[in-house]
């Protein structure tokens, strides 16, 4: 037994070392690890400080120590008991959810149409949609505002949501993914007697689930963290979304960082849930399984 054990170890060792010459591996690996480490710190530091700050008393917050002197949960109690936070949270959930569902449906519907149907002007429409990607949001904010004002959408859910209910990026993403769905699937369904809307929904959509999941994550996060437009279009505190509301914690002179950070920490929870729910779809690509083996 012992002999077998060492043999196995010897083989696995030689397999490991056989991959690269030892010296080069060491140098290259050290550099790689350092880069990854630096990247990791960059990623984690803000989150660590967010949580750390949320556990501090106000007098401590400009002390950069990661571990608070007297960690406590008072901030959490305060924020959660503050009625405004709850209202903003609900606003954000409603807005991000509706916008996500809307993007999933309409981006994919348009993407599918652009991808799988031949009609006059199809290419022009596609280019027109793509070209809107080149217009920065900052430039659109004022026209949006004027439009909302004219149509009476200021300070409403609709006003906050309408610019994002469909996105050029999502349409482009879905169109590209529908390219990977072989026409055979669609034609088979057509012969089986489904109408075009049924084909899109029951055949094409399940085949691009990974893309839909990715899109859902993008759109949800994008709307969850959106700041400029909700700030501009809302007036009343009750209509604020979470980021807008959080930034208003405290008065102009005295920003209450520990409360903002507490609210921010709580508001990451839905994004984690969304990510965990949808990411498993991203991992499983399903399109190929129905085709030749």
């Amino acid at each position: 037994m012992a002999v077998v054990g060492t043999e196995i170890r010897a083989t696995s060792e030689s397999l490991l070392t056989a991959r690269q010459p030892r010296k080069a591996a060491n140098m290259g690996q050290i550099i790689r690890w350092l880069l990854l480490f630096a990247g990791g710190i960059l990623m984690v530091a803000p989150i660590a400080y967010m949580i750390s700050t949320s556990l501090k008393w106000p007098h401590e917050i400009y002390n950069l120590a990661l571990i608070p002197d007297e960690p406590h949960l008072e901030n959490y109690t305060y924020v959660l008991e503050d009625g405004r936070f709850y209202g903003w949270f609900v606003n954000s959930i409603i807005i991000a959810t509706i916008t996500t569902v809307s993007n999933i449906l309409f981006d994919s519907l348009v993407g599918y149409t652009l991808c799988k149907f031949r009609f006059a002007g199809r290419y022009i429409i596609f280019i027109a949609i793509l070209s809107t990607l080149m217009i920065p949001t900052e430039m659109l904010v004022i026209p949006w505002y004027l439009m909302s004002q004219a149509l009476g959408w200021l300070d409403s859910y609709w006003g906050i949501m309408f610019p994002g209910l469909m996105t050029a990026f999502g349409t482009f993403l879905m169109k590209q993914f529908f390219e990977t769905v072989p026409d055979d699937f669609i034609e088979a369904a057509r012969i089986d007697g489904l109408n075009e809307l049924e084909i899109w929904w029951t055949v094409a959509m399940p085949l691009v689930r990974p893309a839909l999941a990715a899109l859902a994550i993008f759109v949800f996060l994008g709307n969850w963290t959106a700041f400029i437009w909700p700030l501009i279009v809302t007036n009343s505190v009750e209509m604020y979304t979470l980021p807008v509301g959080l930034s208003s914690f405290g008065d102009e002179a005295d920003v209450q960082w520990e409360l903002i950070m507490t609210g921010a920490a709580i508001s990451t929870i839905p994004t984690l849930v969304v990510f965990l729910v949808f990411q498993r779809f991203i991992i499983r690509g399903v399109v190929m399984a129905g085709l030749k083996g």
Partner: peptide
Amino acid sequence: LEPKDRNIAMVFQNYAIYPH
């Protein structure tokens, strides 16, 4: 007539059975 009204069925080279 639409394909579905022609009373035909087709089998494709790639099978085209729905993976989901």
